[in-house]
Every structure is written in C-alpha cells, then in structure tokens.
C-alpha cells in the first residue's frame, strides 16, 4: 500500500519516456503490409505496345523497380529525372504502372521526358494499383523474385536514391 503513492510518479515517468521516443518517431511513414509478400496478379495493356504487362514480368533474380506514375501528377515529373538517372547509370530494370491516365497525355509525358521503363502497364481503372496497396502517385516498389522488398511513398528525391534505394538494390 505504501508503493501506491508512487504510482502517479511512475506513470508520469513512463509516459515522458514514451513521449520522448515518439517525438523522434516519424508517424507519417506507413509501412505496407505487402512488403515481404508476392506481387499480386495483374495483367495490363502496355502503353506503346499491344502486348500485355503482367506480374510475371516482374519475376527475376535481379532487383526490379516498379514505379506508379501519372502524367497529371506534378511530383512525378520531378521524380522522372531521378528514374532516368537510375535507368541510365545502373543496371536495374524499371517497370512503370501508368495510373488513371489519359493515353495521349501519358505518351506525350514519356516522349517529352524520356523513357526509363522496360515496360509500361496502363491501369485506367486504378484497380491494379489498389491491389498493390497504392495510396496515390507516385509510389515505388523494389521487387526481387516476385517478392516486394521495399515500398516508397511519394516522389524519390536524388538524395533518397543515393541513401536508400541504391544501397538496397546493391545489397540484393
């Protein structure tokens, strides 16, 4: 019974420790439950081609980058340069998923800014994106052997490419 008087003190100390750690914890970053799982099945028309792009295209020993983009998304434009660098300087296959876009606009976007993608699947309904757990554009997945290794929400900046994406790809 004597200890009960110290209970409020103990609770306060514990809470302050908790707050101290959550102060430095970035709550805006969400982990995807799909990390560590297989890429869900999909089969999409390709943008410059009459063939299909399917989830089987993403199965390879080499790491594969899957980027969700759209011509109407402004951050995607900034990110596109980073993707171009990645495709030109490093031995990585990049696949694109064109999210809820207009075909001519999408083609104009690629023709104007260059094409870093091996294949581009067109997801007009946005359904395949939901299957991939996408919040919005742009988002990027790193895939190996058909398993999702990493997910990046929002545009990849140059420093993020150097600090996160490249080390991850090199490790694989």
């Amino acid at each position: 019974m004597r200890l009960i008087k110290f209970l409020p003190l103990i609770i306060i100390v514990l809470l302050c420790i908790f707050f101290f750690f959550s102060l430095n914890n970035d709550t805006t970053k969400l982990s995807s439950p799909l990390v560590g799982k297989e890429v869900p099945e999909f089969s999409l028309d390709r943008l410059f081609n009459n063939e299909k792009m399917t989830n089987k295209d993403l199965i390879s020993d080499k790491p594969i980058v899957l980027n969700i983009w759209s011509s109407w998304c402004i951050p995607c434009r900034a990110e596109h340069d980073v993707l171009m660098v990645l495709s030109e300087l490093y031995d990585v296959d990049i696949y694109g998923l064109n999210y809820k876009d207009n075909e001519t606009e999408a083609k104009k976007f690629i023709e104007g800014l260059g094409n870093p993608f091996e294949k581009i699947g067109v997801d007009t309904s946005g359904r395949s994106a939901i299957n991939l757990g996408v919040y919005g554009v742009p988002e990027t997945f790193i895939i190996q052997n058909g398993i999702i290794i990493y997910k990046h929400i929002g545009p990849i900046h140059m420093n993020e490419l150097d600090e996160k994406i490249l080390p991850l790809i090199k490790d694989l």
Partner: peptide, 8 residues
C-alpha cells in the same frame, strides 16, 4: 515528476 514526488 517533482509535484508527484512531493505528493508521494
């Protein structure tokens, strides 16, 4: 913490 210590 000081006020709850005082309380205790």
């Amino acid at each position: 913490s000081s006020s709850f210590l005082l309380f205790a």
